[in-house]
């Protein structure tokens, strides 16, 4: 053990010999869990989906619920044409691959031959995700589900293709699922994406696309 570690730990143990009282709380409970106090998520599936849709709209993310994969393919093809997406970077996945390959452009699976420079030149990144949190409109991606760390952040557009049953009502349920799914073996990166990249650093005026994607699409296949 390093000297510094020993010394800091010693200081901590010494400092904590004097206990400090619990903070002044409004509630009486000694063990308070946060989830009960966070924003409402609705009682029914329809309400949860409505909430997700509202949240994504407020975040200026583009939300497209579709009936099946064919609709997803048609939708993204159309978007690609309108937006002139030519260099398509994607992560191989049952939902993502057919969509990426259908686009009229150069589809490149990052899984095959990763290159930072090539990723930087991509017009759009296509990924799947772990889950979607309706309560906040947050999309959880991981280094496993989303083609590493860069694919969901470096290209100027991020398109997420997911299944409707990946929607969880609230953050608490999402963490519960993370614990179950990954247990002691977390992917090296888990990231909640809550709307397209943004900044308010100049006069607190909102600008999208600070460093990450300027546009974020969520295509949800029923």
């Amino acid at each position: 053990m390093s000297e510094a570690r020993k010394e800091i730990m010693g200081r901590i143990r010494e400092a904590l010999k004097t206990p400090s009282p619990k903070p002044h709380l409004k509630g009486q409970s000694s063990k308070v869990t946060g989830k009960a106090w966070l924003p409402e998520v609705g009682d029914t599936h329809a309400e949860t989906m409505g909430l997700l849709s509202d949240n994504l709209a407020k975040l200026k993310a583009s939300f497209h619920p579709v009936e099946n994969l064919d609709q997803a393919i048609a939708l993204v093809k159309d978007l690609a044409q309108k937006k002139n997406w030519k260099n398509i970077a994607y992560h191989k996945n049952d939902l993502v691959t057919p969509v990426a390959l259908a686009i009229d452009g150069n589809a490149w699976a990052v899984d095959d031959s990763f290159s930072k420079d090539k990723l930087e030149a991509a017009d759009v990144g296509l990924t799947s995700c772990v889950s979607i949190v309706a309560q906040f409109g947050a999309i959880l991606v991981s280094s496993e589900t989303s083609g590493g760390r860069g694919l969901s952040i470096l290209p100027p557009v991020h398109v997420v293709i997911a299944k409707a049953d990946q929607v969880v009502p609230d953050l608490a349920a999402c963490f519960e699922q993370i614990n179950l799914q990954f247990g002691g073996k977390m992917p090296s990166m888990l990231s909640f994406i809550t709307g397209p990249s943004r900044t308010g650093d100049i006069e607190r005026i909102l600008v999208l696309g600070a460093h990450g994607p300027k546009e974020l699409y969520l295509i949800l296949v029923r």
């Binding site: 590493g148 977390m186 809550t194 990249s197 943004r198």
Partner: peptide, 24 residues
């Protein structure tokens, strides 16, 4: 802090690039 529901990115890192991961 910012008057947002959640900030845009909240990211959890567990170690460097793992075997099988593409970048990092």
């Amino acid at each position: 802090g910012a008057g947002q529901p959640m900030t845009c990115y909240n990211t959890l890192y567990a170690g460097p690039k793992k075997p099988g991961e593409l970048d990092g």
